Structures are given as C-alpha cells and as structure tokens.
Simulated assay, not measured.
Amino acid sequence: MSKKIYVRSFFIVAIIVMVSSFYSLPYYVSKPGIAKELHPIIEVKNGTEEKGSFMLTTVRMGKANIYSYLIAKWSKFQELYPVNAIRSKDETDKEYNIRQLQLMSSSKTAAIEVAYKNAGLPFKYEYKGVYVLNVIPNMPAENKLDAADRVFEMDGKPIQSSDDFLELIKEKKAGEHVALTYERENKVKNVDLTLKAFPSDNKKVGVGIVLVDDKKILVDPEVKIQTSNIGGPSAGFMFSLEIYNQLVKEDLTKGYKIAGTGTITSDGTVGRIGGIEQKIVAADRAGADIFLAPNENGAKDSNYVAAVKTAKEIDSKMKIVPINQFDEAIQYLEDLKMKNK
C-alpha cells in the first residue's frame, strides 16, 4: 500500500469515527460521578464548623453514542437506560433539563424545611406564581407557553400557587378563553388561550401545561445553597443533614467523611434514587467512611440492599447504613463515637 493511500485511508477512518461519535442512540449512559463535600456549597449564617464532612454523591448521565454504548455494555458500573425511562413522553431536551433543575430546587426547599423544623426553628413560605415544567402536545398552550415560563395571573386575578391556578380553571368549560400573564426571560407577556378537554380525561379542561409552584422558603438564620447546574432531587437528604449540622451546636460528623443519597420530603422521609451503585463507587473513590442509603422500609430491592452488594463487589471499607427517616439518621450520628485520628 502506497503512503498516499495509507494517509487517505487513515483520514477517512478518522472522519467516520468523528462523525459517528456525534450520532446519538436512544439510550442514556449512567456512570460514577463525584462525591462532593457540602460545607463549601451550603452556608447557614453564623453556622457551626465541622471536623468531618457530609458529601453528596452524583452520577454522570449523558446520551449514548455507539462508542459509549459499547463501553457501557462491558463496564460493570455503567448502566444503559432507554430514553423513555429517563424522559417523560413527548418531553423535549429543554423541558427535561428544566425539570431536573426544578427537582433540585424543590429538594433544596424541602431540605431547608426539614432541617429547620428538626432544629426547632421557624420557617414560612412566600408564593410567587407557578412555573411551566412541560407543555402537552396538541393542547392550547403548545407553541404559546414554554418550559420555565412563570405564570402569575389569570384573567386579571393573581396566581400564587398551582392550587390557585386549578381553582380558577375548574370554573370554566371547553371553548372558553383565559388570559394568562407570565414572565419569560425577565419580560412580562400576555397570551389568550382557548380551553380544551384533555385527551386522557375529557371531563377535565385546561391549557395543557404541567405546573410546579414558584415558592421561596423564608428562614432565620439565612441559608444559601450553591448547586450550579446540578439537577435532580437525589441530594435532598444530604442537604438536610448539612444544614441541620450547621444549625445545632453538636458536630454530627465527628471527624468522619459521611456520604449518602436520597430524596427528602417535608415530613422527613428519605426516598429512593437511581444510580445507587455508581454513587457507592464515587463515594468509595473519595475516601468516604460512611454511606447513608435509603432503606425504603426494608424493601427487598431497596437502595440499601443494592448499596451493600456494590460495596462488597468493590471491596469497600465504607459502612453502609440503612435510613428511612431523617430523624433516624440524626439518631445514628448522635450515637456515633468520635473518629480516632
């Protein structure tokens, strides 16, 4: 083979590899992310210091191309998920990303409520309207409203919450008009929509948007959580522990690196998350001593069971602790002996 043919063949192969890497398959790849200390990103005004640390754990998630698909197929701690297992039906990339950021925002709010409630400190909510999470295809809001729009008025009446929105809508019938006032990219706009019955339930009418409350929790002392572009609800439980630890006098970390995961609800329930196996790997790589895992009331396929299995497979020295409720975690940490130096 002549040098010219060899060089030409090389460039052709290189171009094929490069082009094919941009072609997405209908799958997402999940792989171990990072374990990140929370104290630098969560600040309670005049909060107490820690000798150890609480850590959130993440997974790296992205659309699969042919190469990442093949790597995931042969990697023990990478997972493949069909697109419909990650994104809702008809959900766009933009809507998915906004939903993930909104879930993160909601998890932060719930974490603050749980922490302050358990620390015996007051809190209250300020409602400012509703955010659009999704726009349902073939409904009046399609191409009129968009994900992340903040709706705060209907027919001149103020809307503070999704309950307000639904109360006003239920008084109307298909074919009637509603005038909505909303904010998009710091600009106030108006739109007139004709109500229509939902395809899934023709007894209900609406404009075809999925809503979430735009609300702010007001607390004293003030708390700030800097999460950048991290999305999803799975850090809520660890947020609540870090906030609580800065509010109380006793340092619950006691010198340990304490990683974990789980959603949190306002009543303190710690919920199931995805990617527990990858998060165990991430925490182990970061040198965590303890990992707090959702126990799901002892379910056979709980996150805790999967976490224990993964820890054994990678020969981790981390102690895996099952948690159902926030106060269980507090009790465990209060009983924990100080780490030997």
Rank of each mutant, 00 (worst) to 15 (best):
Y81H: 07
M61Q: 15
A14S: 09
F77V: 04
S75H: 11
A14R: 04
I86V: 15
I42P: 03
T92C: 08
E43R: 12
A35E: 02
G47Y: 03
R99D: 07
V19L: 13
M55F: 14
T58C: 08
M61E: 15
I15S: 14
A64C: 07
S68R: 05
V19M: 07
E79G: 03
S21I: 00
V29A: 09
V59D: 09
I12C: 08
N97G: 07
I71C: 05
D90G: 00
E91K: 06
I98C: 04
L70H: 04
K63N: 05
I98E: 15
M18T: 11
Y27F: 10
Y28T: 05
T92D: 08
F54H: 01
V19I: 04
D90I: 03
I34E: 15
I15L: 15
G62D: 13
E50I: 07
L25K: 00
I12H: 09
L38F: 11
E79P: 02
E79S: 14
L38N: 08
N97S: 13
P26D: 14
Y27I: 04
E91H: 03
S24D: 13
K36W: 12
P26W: 13
G62C: 03
P26G: 05
D90H: 11
N84I: 06
S75M: 11
I15K: 07
S30C: 03
M55I: 11
N84L: 06
A85P: 02
R87E: 14
T92S: 15
H39M: 12
Q100A: 12
A14I: 05
S68V: 06
T57C: 08
K73P: 02
V59H: 08
Q100P: 00
E37N: 05
I12M: 13
M61P: 00
T48H: 10
K31N: 14
G47T: 02
G47D: 00
Y81S: 06
I16R: 01
M18A: 14
V44Y: 01
G33E: 04
K51H: 05
